[in-house]
Amino acid sequence: MKISIDLTVNGERHQVDTTPWITLLELLRETLHLTGTKEGCGLGECGSCIVLVDGRPVNSCLMLAVDARGRQITTIEGLVSNGDLHPLQQSFIEKGAVQCGFCTPAMILSAKALLDENPDAGEEEIKQTLSGIICRCGNYKKIIEAVRTASDGKADS
C-alpha cells in the first residue's frame, strides 16, 4: 500500500512514496538519508528521535510519516545556515555539552523550539523542556549550561 506524501524538510519540499506503517523517523533516516536524527528506544521514552514539526518538538518514532504530510519538519541538519553553525550548536561545542553525541540533536532541537518562543528562558524552563530526553552520558549539567548561554537568560537574573 503506497501513499505519496508532500512534506517540507529543512526548507526543502519533498514528494516521497511511503507506506502507512513507516514512521517519520524511518522516512527521515532511510528515505531522505538524514541520519542526524537518532533512534534510541523507538518507543517514545528516550527522546533521541525528537525533530521539530511546525516548530514544535515531537518524537518522530511515534509519528507516522503520513501524518507529516503538508508539515514543516526541521532536523539537526537544517540548523546550519550558509555554513555557519546555529548559536546553540556553537554553545554546545564551547561548553562541552556533547559527549557521545547521541542525544545532542534532540537536545539542540528542543532547546531551539524553546528559545524561538521564549528567548529569555531560564533554567527551570530549560529543564522542563529537556525533561523527555535521556542523556546516557549524564551530561545534563553542561547541556543546560549550553542552552543557558545561548538564551539571554534574563529570566534567572
Partner: peptide
C-alpha cells in the same frame, strides 16, 4: 530499528 508491522490503513 523498532518497526511497525504492516496494516491496512
Amino acid at each position: 530499528m523498532n518497526r511497525l508491522k504492516p496494516f491496512a490503513y
